[in-house]
Design a protein around this nucleic acid. Sequence first.
DNA 1: AATGAATGAGCGTTCATTCAT
DNA 2: AATGAATGAACGCTCATTCAT
Lengths: 219, 219, 219, 219
Amino acid sequence: MSHKKAEERRERRAAARRNQILDAAAEVFAEKGFARATTKEIADRADISEGTIYNYFQAKEDLLIDIVGRLAESQSLALVIKPDMIEQVLAVPPRDFLNAMFHMRHAFVLENNHLPMLQAVTAEVLVNQEFAARYYRELLEPAMGVLAQHLQARIARGEVRPVDAPLVARFLFAFELGLLGFYVLGDPLIQAEWQSDTLLEAMVDFFLNGLGDVSAGQG
Amino acid sequence: MSHKKAEERRERRAAARRNQILDAAAEVFAEKGFARATTKEIADRADISEGTIYNYFQAKEDLLIDIVGRLAESQSLALVIKPDMIEQVLAVPPRDFLNAMFHMRHAFVLENNHLPMLQAVTAEVLVNQEFAARYYRELLEPAMGVLAQHLQARIARGEVRPVDAPLVARFLFAFELGLLGFYVLGDPLIQAEWQSDTLLEAMVDFFLNGLGDVSAGQG
Amino acid sequence: MSHKKAEERRERRAAARRNQILDAAAEVFAEKGFARATTKEIADRADISEGTIYNYFQAKEDLLIDIVGRLAESQSLALVIKPDMIEQVLAVPPRDFLNAMFHMRHAFVLENNHLPMLQAVTAEVLVNQEFAARYYRELLEPAMGVLAQHLQARIARGEVRPVDAPLVARFLFAFELGLLGFYVLGDPLIQAEWQSDTLLEAMVDFFLNGLGDVSAGQG
Amino acid sequence: MSHKKAEERRERRAAARRNQILDAAAEVFAEKGFARATTKEIADRADISEGTIYNYFQAKEDLLIDIVGRLAESQSLALVIKPDMIEQVLAVPPRDFLNAMFHMRHAFVLENNHLPMLQAVTAEVLVNQEFAARYYRELLEPAMGVLAQHLQARIARGEVRPVDAPLVARFLFAFELGLLGFYVLGDPLIQAEWQSDTLLEAMVDFFLNGLGDVSAGQG
DNA sequence: AATGAATGAGCGTTCATTCAT
DNA sequence: AATGAATGAACGCTCATTCAT
């Protein structure tokens, strides 16, 4: 039916506009922060007029909310270990699993305009309680939960030491969050090596062996 | 001389006023973010009038700059391993050294109104290049440099594995930065345990041993 | 001719659309006032798109102008004493004439969506000189003129005291205008009784006898 | 005490500013209507900057609310028959009482910038339910109540016919409201005579005698 | 003839900064 | 040194109007 097709095309166009606006918003938010970003600059960046933003979003704040939503969706597609794949993933040795995970997360950051989105959202989250809750609930908690379960399974299989899985999952995410902070702060070493095997292997090595507890044998 | 004394007293009072204003500013910045914080609220919080702020600072932005300065100064007093103490510090076993360092850094966060200052500065740093540079140069780089050197010395003494010291120093600071992020985000586990021995020891353990490389023996 | 018929049908449809839009506009203007009413809400209320309004009217303001026009036309059909009926109307006793007039005017307000139209126009008229002139010229003056003439004829016939006819005609219309104001303001007494015989008779009685000049006999 | 005096002077200045702004606002509201009036024009008219308005009022709407308040206060000072004066007022013959009342009300309109205030408020009231309620409660009801009581007392004394006092009080106020409408609409007769004895006496005469019920004697 | 996405001027409001007191 | 009233630029947002479809 032509009516149906026309509707579909309209919806596709609307979705494209929304994404166009969100991409522009994420960039400006990342550069200036949410509060200092102006709807005018977002509109200019997206090559539309200010009024058009409000045909697609109710308020400036909704842009940030929807950016979180897009990140969450994107992450869930990319990072969650699907229930029906558990066995296959557990078959991968810990070293390779860690490497793959770090690799995937570092690649995720640079894909699809994710960096400005993460930067924009992270900065706002530090000074906006409502956002903090949403960010924690939608982005951190689900991914951390999956990792903690996975870790627990590895422990049960005797592949890693019997550490406190939820705590170590937080360590891992905190570590990644901090490393992303270093990237955004412009640390030359982290920026240059962000996707390099050198960095990923150093991380894997560090997570598996730590500094090497020489005292352990001595104590 | 009484003239000199009067001058000194005046300067002491001025410094007290500055600190009073900076404390108020740090709180408001932490709660709302720099851009959303208003000079009116800062003035109210500091129990002075808006005009008075401008007798002590040229612009709102200077408040944040001076907060970074105060943090840097405070950190340099508290955290830098003084050159004339190197030998004594190296005498401490790695495990105790790490424990002391984590303990000191976590205590630092909660002391002297440092948390709001760190929160305010960290949020702004993510979206303000000028600030990012200042923060990196004044707060991160010096402390990281000292730690990297220290680590190198430990490696030379055979106390820790021959890791890439500058990189691992970054790992350590990234980890701490990310953990602070979790604290500010309101992660219940991290917040509850922030200064507990349990958390500090888990961290030390993790840094010394990692997950335990079971595959190492297998490879 | 089928061409002519098609044209007529088109015109009838166009007139229906115009009325559909004007009815919707009058409602929204009455509820929110002209300036606060949006073309979007008018379009929604009329079940058409915003663009369609502009196929029938040049601008939002024209909606109000045409509402005045419709009211004037409607009033002239209903209220003006036709020249060829003068004799018949004068044959009606004053009391019955007043009663009929009040009855007709009060019914007029509640008929055919007139109330929102009157409300919308009256509110705008108070703050818009151009409109005030149009309203006065098209709605008040003609009706007042007819009433004044009629009154004069009654005076000539000795049926009413020799009052200043144009002034008393104004009194009568001012009174009705004010009463409509009370209705719109939500005065419970006036609203409840708007079309009741009680109110109409009290009005007639008041217009014929006033408060009763007790002093007249004393003076 | 000089502190107290300074405070008093400050308050006097603030009150003057508020009045200066309200006067300007009333004028602009009367000319354009509340919604079309801009804060910029009010500020220009009051010879201050737009920002200053917001040092004295929370929002544009509060200007109108406070105008109603000023009118109510002003009216209560001018028009309410004080309880301890009832006897004196009742001693005045009905004709003189009506004349004085009409005189006072017509003078009130032209005094102290009341006309633009009444015009502004009346126009808004017709299209704003919240305002209608406030206007009715604060401006109409109290004055109408006093008049109805007074009328009842006159009836009890046999000075006026036994009319329905609350209803006739409404008639009187509706009449005045409508007459004010005619004034604002620019009716040349009403405008020219607004304060003239001719008009006032015609009104008094009309209220006392109506059109003269010739039929009464006939019936 | 009807649509509704796009426009951009203009609105009410905020707030860092100034300055007379 | 301290005040707080005044400022006005700049913001987020609305909405009458246009026009390609």
